[in-house]
Design a protein around this nucleic acid. Structure first.
Lengths: 148, 148
DNA sequence: ATGAATACTTGCAATTTGCAAGTAAATAAT
DNA sequence: ATTATTTACTTGCAAATTGCAAGTATTCAT
């Protein structure tokens, strides 16, 4: 029987390391969490604070302060919702979009390099496997609240 | 072309979340980093502080203090090396071994549950893919030095 | 024997964290 | 219509975590 945890542990530590090192773009020093925040704001449609905080399973107060930092860095904009004045709609500034895109690009460059060590069949298999795994994880009842 | 980053991001966030939630065993409150430290001490043969800190890419001073905490919790033992009195050999206490094993078990239970949503062929494919990926990542020259 | 390198520890100051308590707006109850 | 409750977010504060600089102790190099 395989020790599944081991191989997953190695994988996620490596990826986490990449996540950690990827995040300085130009003069911006971006922490891992901040890059994840930018990533999620970019993905979602007019997200509120709550929404992003929940996706990232962050305490809302911690999140609030991280957003303040990102607003001060002029990477994120906060717009009060017209429907509900309590909620702030988050969006990326032009600079924020640039940073998010740069990080995304860097990550994909890295992943392409990783995949270059495989042949075409292997590449396809791996991609298919990760997708399968994501589906299976989202079906799981054991861990965590589903992310998407 | 796939957006590789997206599917990897989802995967590693989910796994990270699991890592975060898994770690309270009995009366022990274990943080994610601490569980990784226990895991690596268990894996390695008579590791020094440096060794584990490097594997986990942690600052040695931060690591030193984390180890102090784990020693105080009676989960880790520090034995001065007989060959070199500067180095401390790390090992798990009986309790530490128990905690590490419990976490490992919990993770594998979760992973088994995840894999139960697949058929046997898929399971094999996924395991093979993760291994392939780990190999490819270890060959990569790009990762883990700052990208910009 | 002396200087440089290595393995680790401590001082300190900055950052990050999460709970408790706050404000303000929307919804429900009377 | 007024009051109470819930929701969305912010601030106070105290504890924990971090990393650099500077320290000690041991080993290696010359």
């Amino acid at each position: 029987m395989e020790n599944k945890r081991e191989i997953f542990h190695v994988l996620t530590r490596r990826f986490g390391l990449l996540d950690k090192n990827c995040c300085s773009v130009g003069s911006f020093e971006i922490s891992t969490i901040q890059s994840h925040i930018l990533y999620e704001i970019d993905r979602q449609h007019e997200p509120s604070m709550q929404q992003i905080a929940q996706i990232l399973t962050m305490d809302i107060t911690t999140f609030s302060r991280q957003i303040q930092t990102l607003v001060n860095m002029d990477l994120v904009k906060k717009t009060p919702s017209s429907q509900d004045k309590r909620v702030s709609i988050l969006s990326l500034s032009v600079q924020g979009k640039f940073v998010a895109t740069s990080i995304d690009h860097a990550m994909n460059v890295y992943l392409d390099e990783v995949f270059s060590h495989m042949d075409e069949n292997e590449r396809e298999m791996v991609i298919r496997s990760i997708k399968l795994l994501n589906e299976a994880m989202s079906k799981s009842s054991v861990c965590c609240t589903p992310l998407y």
